[in-house]
Amino acid sequence: MIQFVFYFFIFLTLASAFALLFVRQILYAVLLLLVVMLCVAGLFILMQAEFIGVSQILIYAGGVAVLFIFGIMLSDKKGFSFTKVAYTQIFSGMGIALVLGSLLLYATQAVKKLPNEVKVKNDVQQLSFELLSDFALPFEVTGILLLSIFIGVAYIAGKTNHTQS
């Protein structure tokens, strides 16, 4: 049962990601991204990283998706010109992505099969200890970073260009 859920999540992730390549409506793309995120969160939980999974759902589903939707609201307007992307660009982009993916797959062949089952206990507690001891400084720095980003983004997005408008 759990095995089935695992493969189902993997399949759903890959399928939604693949669908992203062909979607034209940006709102759909955001919804597909949301599906990918939720599936990945499910995979995290299956990998005994419940805290990370919950964070993934909170951050991506609650934050990033909303951000994207606001971005669409503020930028996707009629009258904007959408130049067609050149085919050379599409083919070269696809080609380089394919090559990159296949190279990485080839590289992971060296790993062969990883161990299948590992008994680990659920340790959110250990994670919190680590964050507040060994990673205390990066944790604080990240907080400061978030604060400054919050201010900076508010500043950038709020700035109106008087010469243009």
Binding site: T13, L14, A17, F18, L20, L21, I26, A29, V30, V36, F68, G71, I72, S75, D76, F82, T83, K84, V85, Q89, I90, S92, G93, M94, I96, A97, L98, L100, G101, L104
Partner: peptide, 17 residues
């Protein structure tokens, strides 16, 4: 696969979103 798809998206799509 996700990396490859992300790369393809970054390189080929015409919208910043």
């Amino acid at each position: 696969v996700l990396v490859a798809i992300g790369t393809a998206l970054v390189l080929t799509r015409k919208s910043l979103l």
